[in-house]
């Protein structure tokens, strides 16, 4: 019998704790597949954030470090500077990366740390129960913006790829989505490239994955994908924002 579906060898047998329909699961798989296909599991060290993906350390078979909220890029900097021969990645949510950890994100990027960042943008704080995130859309209802995000009070969302692509230290910044099969395939390519860049010592690479949080958006998994397409993609256009080696500086 032909095998048509197999778990990557770089994922452990631990049962994922994510809610049904949550895109964290797909993104874990894409990261694991990239590590597997590049044959780097034995030299890779992942950094788990604080957020729904905090327990990522149980899911990947490579060595893992759990960082304080938002500090994953600083922890990754320490890991990489100590052992430059290793491949170091962080996996972070939007609250982690673009609110409490903004300084660590921007400065690891501007230093051109040769690390890979997988950034999961689901426009909400998932783990703490659905509060406003730095990427929550104007008008979006969350637990802490019950009347919709009022930009006169809460300001505007952060577009991370656009912001980071202005920094000279950044090698590669691309925004992808996992809402359709073609988009998942494209995300797989981008994530692999972000790891390959590190192997090739090209420097800081970030892949922003526009994602869903059905639970805290109060939608079914399928409705959530529709909401992502209608609301998030117009605000967060997909594409390559920077690819220094390919001569692409701004979109």
């Amino acid at each position: 019998m032909a095998t048509v579906f197999q778990k990557p060898s770089t994922l452990t047998d631990a049962k994922l704790h994510y809610c049904p329909g949550c895109t964290h699961g797909i993104i874990h798989r894409l990261v694991a597949e990239a590590i597997e296909s590049l044959g780097i599991d034995g030299i890779t060290v992942g950094v788990a954030p604080v957020g729904c993906s905090v327990m990522a350390y149980d899911y990947f078979t490579c060595d893992m470090v759990q960082a304080p909220h938002g500090r994953a890029p600083a922890v990754a900097t320490g890991l990489k500077r100590a052992r430059p021969e290793n491949i170091v990645f962080t996996y972070q949510g939007d609250g982690d990366l673009a609110a409490i950890g903004t300084a660590e994100t921007v400065h690891s990027a501007t230093r051109g740390e040769n690390i890979t960042i997988i950034f999961v943008n689901n426009a909400i704080y998932g783990m703490t129960g659905g509060q406003m995130a730095p990427t929550t859309l104007p008008g979006q209802v969350t637990q802490t913006t019950p009347y919709g995000r009022d930009t006169s009070i809460a300001g505007f969302p952060v577009r991370v790829c656009e912001m980071l692509s202005t920094l000279d230290g950044v090698e590669y910044a691309e925004r992808v989505s996992v809402d359709t099969v073609p988009n998942i395939n494209n995300a797989a390519r981008a994530i692999k490239k972000a790891f390959q860049n590190q192997i090739d010592k090209k420097g800081f690479s970030i892949v922003e994955v526009v994602s869903t949080c059905p639970t805290n958006w109060g939608l079914t998994p399928v409705e959530a994908l529709g909401w992502l397409r209608e609301n998030m993609l117009p605000y967060y256009p997909l594409g390559v924002y920077k690819d220094r080696s390919a001569g692409k500086e701004t979109k």
């Binding site: 470090v65 500090r71 600083a74 922890v75 320490g78 990489k80 100590a82 300084a103 660590e104």
Partner: peptide, 26 residues
Amino acid sequence: GLYLQAESEVAAINMVLGAASAGVRT
């Protein structure tokens, strides 16, 4: 060796956390 000026004390101690995790004297 490496001297790295961090963006804050918060970042510096977390770089130490990372380097210590990698098993070096930091």
